[in-house]
């Protein structure tokens, strides 16, 4: 498998914050058509157990989660409801909960248990300590 490498920036480049603008106007990027391209986004150790971190995979923002059982999950970075930063959410074996309004999304199919639009999921796996997300 050939890996397209995109560096996770050391210091993330963030545009200066504008007061009170939710990230709804920001696209989570077009997913590549077809089977997708794997990208190394960082190391598994970058994501503490039970938490999530945001990365860019091939120009697409993704949130990657490492659950306490060791499993990896990746979703779009912005909550479909109001653009909340999903990587800052809380997780358990079944769902991801957005920090802004506590909408929950199932890992199994991305469907919201609270009535929001479903969240987009991306395949993610570990490869020799590296975190690989396919978008």
């Amino acid at each position: 498998m050939s890996l397209a490498h995109s560096d996770a920036p050391e210091a993330p480049t963030t545009a200066p914050a504008r007061a009170g603008t939710p990230a709804t106007g920001v696209s989570d990027g077009p997913a590549a058509p077809g089977p997708g391209v794997p990208h190394v986004v960082g190391r598994v150790d970058d994501v503490p157990p039970g938490e999530g971190r945001a990365f860019v995979a091939g120009g697409v923002q993704v949130a990657v989660f490492r659950l306490r059982d060791g499993s990896l999950h990746a979703t779009q970075a912005a909550c479909p409801h109001a653009g909340g930063p999903l990587a800052d959410g809380q997780t358990d074996a079944d769902v991801l909960v957005c920090p802004l309004h506590l909408f929950a999304y199932r890992w199994s199919d991305g469907v919201s248990t609270s009535g929001a639009a479903p969240v987009r999921r991306y395949p993610v796996h570990e490869d020799a300590g590296r975190l690989v997300v396919t978008v």
Binding site: P9, P12, T14, A15, A54, A77, D88
Partner: peptide
């Protein structure tokens, strides 16, 4: 680490 937005899209 920032969670949003990482890049100007």
């Amino acid at each position: 680490r920032t969670a949003l937005p990482l890049v100007d899209l």
